[in-house]
Design a protein around this nucleic acid. Structure first.
Lengths: 154, 154
DNA sequence: CTTGACACCGTACTATGCTACGGCATCTAT
DNA sequence: ATAGATGCCGTAGCATAGTACGGTGTCAAG
């Protein structure tokens, strides 16, 4: 790791490896407006701020939580616009909060069923199995939840 | 809706609309081994059990929670093999439980940040903002968590 | 001063998860 | 009995999210 380069910012290859993605992915995210492409200096290559690495890492995590790139962009926008556009931020934040809570609820129900299943499998006497309703456990008890989880005209 | 059809099972179109997907999606899931295609009777069309509808609904929910079709298939397999192959089921169930718990942790941290952001936006005096570290909140405090969220050779 | 590592840029290809389309068979209501 | 809906089956196309590739440029070390 050559420390001096980081004082002026990271080069694209450094950003990519620090975030655990390919260089092409960084460029793809630039094209998709998820990160900003720094201006090209007259001499040398583009330098990215540390924040770019954090943004890419955030995006990868968000995807694993069932968010699309579009939704990740919306979440990142909350960060970017925090200071201005308070009304819009409030609206988006509330929508995303509902979605997050709905996901948590569903995952908790799934976790309970999995925990029971694990218990059953470790049971000495295989007869004492309780019902492990995997199929049903993700069904929304709130009929609304279905929409909250869905990426729509939010 | 002609009630009697349900006594012998659902036709593919009925399955699709009950599960909120297209007929083609049902067939796609059959090809991918997520649901079983019932044998074609000598007269009339294939009849699907109610369970098929539940399986498709489960799959759609699982996707919204960041699981791939492959992972959904693995979760469904736990249901199917509950009675046999206890060792394998136990192994898979534990893996999936870890993944679910990791997702819940990350979503909780995101929710906290969103809640704070919402509070800030509703604040009378815009100076009293606290830090809302959206970018950082999904970072795993456990270095292991990253892998748990990832669909790998589980 | 040239060889190799990146950077830059554009285009093309890939995997996943559907979605549409065409053609024929069947079945159902009038 | 016949029209229109539905089923069946195969192939093709599409959106999302990358991934690969080829060519050129630039810089830095040997």
């Amino acid at each position: 790791m050559t420390e001096p380069s980081h004082r002026q910012g990271y080069r694209i290859g450094e950003v990519a490896s620090a975030a655990g993605v390919h260089v092409e992915t960084v460029r793809y995210y630039e094209r998709e407006g998820l990160i900003v492409q720094p201006k090209k200096p007259h001499l040398g290559s583009r330098r990215y701020p540390e924040e770019t690495i954090a943004r890419i890492r955030f995006i990868k995590h968000a995807q694993k939580l069932g968010f699309t790139l579009k939704e990740a962009r919306e979440l990142l926008l909350l960060q970017t616009n925090k200071t201005q556009a308070c009304g819009a931020v409030l609206h988006q934040a509330k929508i995303k909060q509902s979605a997050v809570l709905a996901k948590i609820q569903a995952l908790r129900r799934l976790e309970i069923v999995l925990a029971r299943l694990i218990q059953d499998c470790q049971q000495e006497y295989p007869n004492q199995h309780h019902a492990c309703p995997i199929l049903e456990c993700l069904e929304a008890d709130d009929a609304n939840m279905d929409d909250l989880l869905t990426d729509a005209e939010e």
